Amino acid sequence: MARKRILALVTLLLAVLAATWQRARAIEMLPPDFDEGIYLPLAYRYAEMLAGGRWGEVMAYRENFEHPPLVKLLYASELRVSGTPEPDWETVHVGRPIPEPAVPVFRQTRWLSGVLGILQVGLIGLVHPVGALLLAFDSYHVKYTSQAYLEAVPGLFAVLAVLAFERARRRAREAGRGEPFQLAPLALSGALLGVTAAGKYPYGMVVGLAFLPFLAGYARGRVRVWAALVLPALGMFLLAHPALWQSPVARLWESITFHWDYSHSKHVVRSALPWYQPLYHLTHATPTEWHKGVFATGATVWVLLPLAALGLPATLRQRPVWAAWALVGLVFLVLWPTKWAQYLLLVLPPLCVCAGLGVSTLYEFAASVLRRRVSGSDQPSQG
């Protein structure tokens, strides 16, 4: 047992070190990307509003309204505190080297994203260290948590929400009082889920749907259990989403319906990505083709889905919430019309957990075969 714990700790440390090295490399080497050209100028506009204490303008600001402002406000706060000057955006071009005057803003905001991506790897390592090692090197996770995108913040809070939800179930079983959930960690999970949704809507929706079977199956008719999750989730969602403060229902509906309209827009339709595009991404390390020399390896895609499929039965037994997240996330990616590559980060953490348990399944199978052979060779020969 001690040997297994030491091996797990060493693997976790290697995963965190690898994640840090790979993301530091990507932060410095990746050229400007499409969405960075949207979010970073907006961060400066938000920084100007924050500097003047103009929260009314923050609430009323309409640019990029389809996405909640939380991550852009975090970027804005960092730029304001650091005093990083705004570059001339006319000199910044997608896919080209970052102009020298623009390097500080990219470095500052990308490191905010990168640190949260590294923390995701570390937290996944607490669930399964081999899963953390896979996530550390996954080229999609590296790319989109090393750029000033929206993915790293809701991704981290989604992992934290799932860990708290698991703790609520485990603590209830340990207490032995017949309750399906312990309310304090369940309320914490709800609050984290609210921040997740305030970072980017699909993360909150997918994780919330993953929680639903456990609530419906084990907390049916227990109002206080549902309230312990739902009320903190709604409260934190509204608190972390200032664009909704003036008219929550109307503005939320407008923001969400934009995504449906956008998924059927000319831009998405013209891209003509097939329904299985997420599965293609999961089996092809396209960032290594887009940005040659940046990523250490693209080999994780060769093993991720096979190992996750192999580990799914064990995950359903041992960590069922992660299995539910992986399955709900895959269904969402296949059904949702918008197929951009960054959407994979919705499902990579739970898939890596399943894949880690797939490695454990292979190890246990190999060990049992070896034990049978050894015990067979120890039998006295007959005759």
Rank of each mutant, 00 (worst) to 15 (best):
M1I: 08
A8Q: 12
L14W: 05
A15F: 05
T20A: 13
D35V: 09
M49W: 04
L50V: 05
W55C: 02
V58E: 11
P69R: 10
Y75F: 15
P85K: 11
D88M: 05
P101F: 08
A102D: 01
P104A: 04
Q108A: 13
R110G: 05
R110M: 03
W111C: 02
G114C: 01
G122S: 01
L123V: 08
P129C: 07
A132G: 05
S146M: 03
A148N: 04
V153N: 04
A161E: 11
V162C: 10
V162L: 14
R167Y: 00
A168D: 05
R173A: 15
G176C: 02
G176P: 02
G178F: 07
A184S: 09
Y201D: 04
G204L: 12
G204P: 13
V223T: 13
L229Y: 13
L234E: 04
Q246Y: 01
Q246K: 12
S247V: 00
V249P: 02
A250V: 11
S255N: 14
F258P: 08
F258Y: 15
F258L: 08
S271L: 07
Y280T: 13
A285C: 12
P287D: 11
K292H: 13
G293I: 08
F295H: 14
A296M: 05
A299I: 01
V303A: 14
A314I: 00
Q318G: 10
W336G: 02
Q342I: 01
L344M: 11
V347N: 05
P349H: 06
P350G: 04
V359H: 01
S360N: 07
L362F: 09
Y363L: 15
Y363G: 14
